[in-house]
Simulated scan of single mutants.
Amino acid sequence: MSTSTVRGQAIGSLLRPDHLVSAQAAFRSGRMSTADFKTVEDRAVDEALRLQEAAGLDVVNDGEMRRTSFMDHLLATVPGALGHEAPIEADSESGGAYAVDNPIAVVEPIVAGRNIGVEEYVYLRGRTRRPVKVTVPSPLMLYGFWSAERSTPVYPDPFDLFGAWTALLRSQIEELVALGCTRVQIDAPDMAVLVDEDQRQQREALGISVERTLTEGCELIDSLAATPGVSVSLHLCKGNFRSMWAASGGYDWLAKRVFAGTPHVDTYLLEFDDERSGDFAPLAALPEDKRITLGLVSTKRDELESLDALLARVDEAAQYVDRERIGVSPQCGFASVAAGANRVGPAMQAAKLFRVAELAAELQS
């Protein structure tokens, strides 16, 4: 399903304001009622919305203010996952790489959890006249929860697990569509980190075939994009935690396979904020009926990109894909995990969103 042209948008998460962080702690400890907590959440969502509207972004979301992680509704299907914080091994607290060691494994069938997107969408649609999108995690994000030693009694093959989450996620997307939602973004770091050879080796070591990820995995994602009544975009992120990343590498190894394997996806959102992203040449493989959103503005660095430099980058990309099919965004969310917000303050976050909208306006002129 195609939708109107989107030139500028945020990716998903925004920095949680202090009043929300305090309320979350109070609610978890039983010092705040559900009703009072929801009032605070609503206020945070309103603030996230007003920021995006003030910036002039074409599509808005709720900043993921009701979540602690971009994949909360996936984690709700795995017993014990929401109450567990995976240990992070990091080279640097600002600008380096990180790795996640997740000891939680799926040992019983996953079951439908809370469809948080319903609350997000229903609240937001009543607060804005702008198009609204809801973000969901890729079906393959459960790769870190499948264990060849512990998960095989219930899911003998990892793609059995991925297929089970796909079925649950499709039902969630269908529920959103029934409520009037027309835009869903699938966040797929599970796919994007495979640009890195080390990540490919690690995935194979888990017993999860990289080749099958690029074939069967793309088929699962595309089955979601084929849901009637909704336009689906695919965000290929290489990791986002306290201004660090999980993978480095250009999209030349990945783009052609993903583009070809997901024909029902309308738009691809790719990171292009620094040298880790490689050049724009892989965009030449983008099918003519698809759009690309360039993540040119970094959510990891506490400095504002110049408009002229960004426009020059767009000009580079336009050598490979028609300018009319190019949109712009930050390279990722500002706080994909609440505890791992990037080292960027609220004022710089706002400046970057305004810069995205300013850049988008230049593309239309």
Rank of each mutant, 00 (worst) to 15 (best):
L304V: 14
L294A: 02
Q201A: 13
V118K: 05
R129L: 10
L179D: 05
L310Y: 00
D190M: 00
A351V: 13
V337M: 13
E41Y: 04
H84Y: 14
P139R: 03
Q331D: 11
A81H: 03
R313M: 06
M191N: 01
H84D: 12
G96H: 03
T182M: 04
E108F: 07
T166L: 07
I326R: 02
G117A: 07
S231T: 12
F241E: 11
K238M: 08
S365D: 12
L51G: 06
R31C: 12
E120W: 06
T135N: 08
N115V: 14
P189E: 04
A338K: 06
P158I: 11
L270D: 03
A285I: 13
S329N: 08
R130M: 11
R125L: 08
I104N: 04
G8E: 06
V230C: 00
V107I: 15
V230T: 09
P228R: 03
A339M: 12
A23Q: 02
L15M: 05
H19L: 09
A350E: 12
W245H: 12
N61C: 09
N342W: 01
V100P: 04
L269F: 10
V193A: 00
L234G: 00
L359M: 03
Q24G: 12
T34W: 14
G250N: 04
L168I: 15
E85D: 15
V21Y: 05
S298Y: 00
E174V: 12
V337A: 15
V132F: 01
F162C: 07
Y121A: 08
A284G: 07
D72M: 05
S233G: 07
N102H: 06
R127Q: 12
S336R: 05
D308N: 04
R7W: 07
K290N: 05
E305I: 11
E175C: 06
V106C: 01
S223W: 00
S92L: 10
G217N: 00
D196W: 04
S171D: 14
Q24Y: 13
G333L: 07
R355H: 09
G261V: 11
